[in-house]
Amino acid sequence: STDESDPWWNAFSASCKEMNMTLKKEIFPAATDSRFIRAVGIPAIGFSPMNRTPILLHDHNEYLNEQVFLKGISVYERIIPALASVAALPNEA
């Protein structure tokens, strides 16, 4: 769910907002392992921190710029603590 009331989405999107990142929400056009995770009832977000990058997956000359790659580490450095610190949910002990 990408509803602001969803604690996972809220943690994820709030940390992106703090980094002034613009997020574009979409439905994935292909199939990834997330579909199996979601199928057993676990919410999942598909996200690879690559902006200013042409979509070249499965294509010839697939590349990623090192600065975009390095920025992505900092992005996870913020997102991971936010997710790992989500307060106990109503259905948790």
Binding site: S1, T2, W8, W9, F12, C16, M21, T22, L23, K24, K25, E26, I27, F28, P29, A30, A31, T32, D33, S34, R35, I37, R38, I42, P43, A44, I45, G46, F47, S48, P49, M50, N51, R52, T53, P54, I55, L56, L57, L64, I79, L83, V86, L89, E92
Partner: peptide, 22 residues
């Protein structure tokens, strides 16, 4: 409780986030 997995590149300044799948 929650999973992160791959997305796709975005040619603009924005970052694409996938919340569902076809």
């Amino acid at each position: 409780g929650f999973a992160l997995d791959e997305g796709l590149a975005n040619p603009t300044d924005a970052f694409t986030v996938f919340y569902g799948e076809r």
